[in-house]
């Protein structure tokens, strides 16, 4: 695989389910979607990482796959907190919601959020990756 064919440098996957993080990492790597996959097991930890590295541009992900249903802090809660992060962070990161929710309300709510650029249903497959916007 040609190193230049990677769509993204660094992609963060925020999901509480280990199997989904594992699958995402496998699929993203196999189809050369990301050079580096950064699995995070909770919204809290994701926020922590982003906030810690807000000055370190290289450490920040180019794209974030965000689950909705997560314990303690769900995907929408994450978006509320994400809003407060510096512009430098928000400018760099593209957020794609990745959920098994089929509720139209969820989709609508997500698409109305200015930081969300896409809504995908799980599971993540090669076909769906093709739908994701390129940088």
């Amino acid at each position: 695989m040609d190193s230049n064919s990677f769509n993204y440098e660094k992609v963060m996957v925020v999901d509480d389910a280990e199997i989904d993080r594992f699958l995402a990492k496998k699929v993203l790597t196999k189809h050369a979607f990301a050079r580096e996959v950064l699995p995070v097991d909770s919204a809290v930890n994701a926020l922590g990482y982003l906030s810690e590295n807000q000055e370190n541009k290289d450490a920040l992900p180019d794209l974030i796959f965000l689950d909705i249903n997560m314990p303690r802090m769900n995907g929408f809660d994450f978006l509320e907190e994400y809003k407060k992060l510096p512009e430098s962070v928000k400018k760099k990161c593209i957020i794609v919601m990745l959920s098994s929710s089929l509720l139209p309300e969820d989709r609508e709510l997500a698409m109305n959020n200015p930081y969300v650029c896409q809504f995908l249903n799980k599971p993540l497959t090669a076909d769906k990756l093709k739908e994701v916007v390129n940088p």
Binding site: A17, I19, L23, V27, K30, N69, S100, L102, N121
Partner: peptide, 19 residues
Amino acid sequence: HDLRAPLGSILGLIDFTAT
């Protein structure tokens, strides 16, 4: 959701494994 989420994961894995 709780029922479908693991199914989604399994489907993803099956697809991936097949490739």
